[in-house]
Deep mutational scan, measured.
Amino acid sequence: LVRYRTISKIPQITLNFVDLKGDPFLASPTSDREIIAPKIKERTHNVTEKVTQVLSLGADVLPEYKLQAPRIHRWTILHYSPFKAVWDWLILLLVIYTAVFTPYSAAFLLKETEEGPPATECGYACQPLAVVDLIVDIMFIVDILINFRTTYVNANEEVVSHPGRIAVHYFKGWFLIDMVAAIPFDLLIFGSGSEELIGLLKTARLLRLVRVARKLDRYSEYGAAVLFLLMCTFALIAHWLACIWYAIGNMEQPHMDSRIGWLHNLGDQIGKPYNSSGLGGPSIKDKYVTALYFTFSSLTSVGFGNVSPNTNSEKIFSICVMLIGSLMYASIFGNVSAIIQRLYSGTARYHTQMLRVREFIRFHQIPNPLRQRLEEYFQHAWSYTNGIDMNAVLKGFPECLQADICLHLNRSLLQHCKPFRGATKGCLRALAMKFKTTHAPPGDTLVHAGDLLTALYFISRGSIEILRGDVVVAILGKNDIFGEPLNLYARPGKSNGDVRALTYCDLHKIHR
């Protein structure tokens, strides 16, 4: 019993810090008490220290592992850092350059016999395009090294910054494609005289377009951006097909006994025919423009016929181009109408809503002055909100995010209106959640004399007048207030005048 009563005193000691020596009952000389009392004092002292730490809000209350900052290894790049964003855009520009100039170089340097010394005699450094290609190869190699040090988000939505895990993730992902696209074939085969082989191998750079397509997928929600990307894709495919079309004609031209190829026909049409040795002929500019003209006309199913396939190889390629053109029509131009419709969806919704308003007016036989006010209010409210119901949009977000959005939407009023000066951010967040926005066209009466005042109004834009009878008592403008002081009276009061809008007004109100 003594032991039980001794232990039962522990909660009292913990909360009230009572010393055991003052209790005459606990001072009985028993061996059990002498053993338990020192333990009680020690526990009391420890609990006292913990309570003191909690009340003082000291940093040592938290466990040590929670006080440590997340460790980022040296030379690790955050995937959302500004440097990584700028670097990704730079790589994107280099990939676009590669997609345009690599097929052009591979096709127009394929057994090209233009006048001038061969590239091997001039030297590697004197070729501007080769120098640019070398810079692109170096940048792609540097990009691989950067990807080995860039964080990523795993399946659990955690940012991984450990170098080993980053390397394994990159090896399992895009490393092989990036490595093949970054191989400097110019340096590996330079001086061997195989410019045709170098041009063909350099087309491996186009593998990076797969990554670019995935990154550009984030802009699919913007109709104008999608339309622009589709047109660029169409032009890029036409450019690639033009390079292939020229390569076919250029390879067949020296081996044909009869002059029936499209390059021969082009030379005869523009007065620059090929001679018996295969030299001469149109310039590279004429060849490229004509090839691009043929691919565009074939892809769009126009086909004027002034550039036509004559050999079997050219006919087979033309059939493939027609098939590609039909697929592009289905996948690209078939979506253009939907994209344009999405661009004008706001206008369509406006006309639909206006039609419903006019049908309501016609069905209920609203008189002319009231009908005009109804239409003007709808037009003004639509121009202010673009038909978007803010309350319906915010309803799907958590309250903390709703408060931040409301604070942002009402920031101008909260910053410049005098009653809100000096208020804490928590108070402003709470008030912003209570605001209701209303609009009024010129001549609209917001409050009639004798109406119950259940709200306090803040003028965000425009001006109003307060009338008693036919006498203008006051004219209020931006950041002015009218209405009933909230919670100042037990019952809502009545208006002693009319409140009429002089201009288009936007008002925020808080109800009782």
Rank of each mutant, 00 (worst) to 15 (best):
A182S: 04
R349H: 05
L409E: 03
V357H: 01
G346I: 05
E196Y: 11
K215I: 01
P398C: 03
C427Y: 01
H380Q: 05
F296M: 13
D186S: 13
R214S: 05
R342Q: 14
W87K: 01
G173H: 13
R259C: 05
A107W: 01
G193R: 13
A449T: 15
Y288W: 01
G249S: 01
Y124I: 11
N265W: 01
Y329Q: 15
F304P: 04
P273C: 01
Q415N: 08
P367N: 06
P367L: 01
A235K: 01
L409Y: 03
F101V: 14
I324F: 08
T352W: 11
A338E: 03
W262F: 01
L355T: 10
D178M: 01
K66W: 08
D186R: 13
A167M: 08
L93S: 05
Q353E: 10
H79F: 01
L207A: 14
I244E: 01
L188F: 13
A155N: 11
P273T: 01
R362D: 03
I96G: 04
Y293C: 08
A106S: 04
L129F: 08
I72C: 06
W262V: 03
P254A: 15
E376K: 15
I332P: 03
I141T: 14
K111D: 11
L109P: 01
A247E: 01
E252G: 03
C243F: 01
G334H: 06
A381I: 08
I189A: 14
C243N: 01
G303V: 01
N410C: 08
V321G: 01
P70Y: 04
D257H: 06
E157Q: 14
Y377I: 01
S161H: 12
K84N: 05
F294L: 01
G443W: 01
L201E: 01
G346L: 03
Q402S: 02
E375I: 15
D286E: 06
F304W: 03
A348Y: 07
T150I: 01
F171M: 14
E195I: 15
D268H: 04
T445S: 06
L93Y: 01
T76S: 04
G199H: 12
L109Y: 07
F108E: 01
I141Y: 01
F360K: 01
R211D: 08
I339P: 01
A423K: 02
L197A: 04
E314A: 02
S412E: 12
D186K: 14
H408R: 03
A99M: 01
S258P: 05
L187T: 10
V168K: 15
M390I: 05
D178L: 01
I324E: 01
A125D: 01
L446A: 02
H351N: 05
S331A: 11
G334R: 07
F234E: 14
D186E: 13
A348Q: 13
N156V: 09
I284A: 03
F296C: 04
E64I: 10
A204L: 11
Y384V: 04
I388Y: 15
P184G: 01
T385M: 13
G346C: 13
A440V: 12
L266S: 01
S220G: 05
H264G: 01
G305F: 01
K285G: 04
L394A: 04
L299R: 01
V226N: 09
I72T: 15
T445R: 04
T98M: 01
I91A: 01
T424A: 10
T102M: 08
S301V: 01
H79L: 01
L109S: 15
A381C: 04
L292D: 01
Y246E: 01
